[in-house]
Amino acid sequence: MGALLTVDDVHVRYGDLVALREVSLSVAQGEVVCIIGPNGAGKSTLLAAVAGGVTPWRGAIRFGDVDVVGIRPEVVARQGLSLVPEGRHIFGTLTVDENLRIGGFIHKGRADAKADYERLLELFPRLRERLNFPAGRLSGGEQQMLAVARAVMTRPRLLLVDEPSLGLAPRIVDQIYEILLDLRRREGLTLVINEQSSNRILKHADRIYVLRGGRIQLEGRAADLADGEAIRSAYFGFGSPATLEGVAP
């Protein structure tokens, strides 16, 4: 199976600070890949680099057949890659309806933008009730749903989701994961999800990367890492005392 996304030996620097070093990963068509790591590990930087928001200092990123290093985010988005960034970044002064339509403007002139819009509202009935609300007034969970729906409106082949569970109640997070996996089933969407904790993602992901200190510490199939032991030591950088059981990973 050909890789949809290949990240090869990527380094990212912010001034003197090296945020990512020697990061390589690949994502195959239809996979759910999760990147887990503590706060500040470089997870968001990695997704931003893939989406064109940050230009790597070194390394190659290929999406499909295209080398996306140095390409502007709007051009990457038009290749079929969409990022739901950390903190959701809803346009708070725009209505829910306008937020959604922004995502569809890439496909202006195509009738299916309208069809996408309707189909997504089927998936997110909460949003339909609030179409003419300023999006800034939605609850955190609704905003996260809107952020996902808005990204899907661009018709991505690859959806990058940065910490979808951040600041949300577990019940809401479950809903959001359900929808993400549903989208994958229905639309053949490939997913890369950043998370700080692994307990939920182990159930859903096909493969897992652990990122700490800007480096990939561990890579493996979720099924092989299910006991969590290897993840714990990669995540913390040392063998895991029993007391850490159930804390972070």
Binding site: G52, R72, P73, E74, S82, P85, F105, I106, T154
Partner: peptide
Amino acid sequence: RMATYLGVR
């Protein structure tokens, strides 16, 4: 930045 992530030129 978010607008460009959504394909706004």
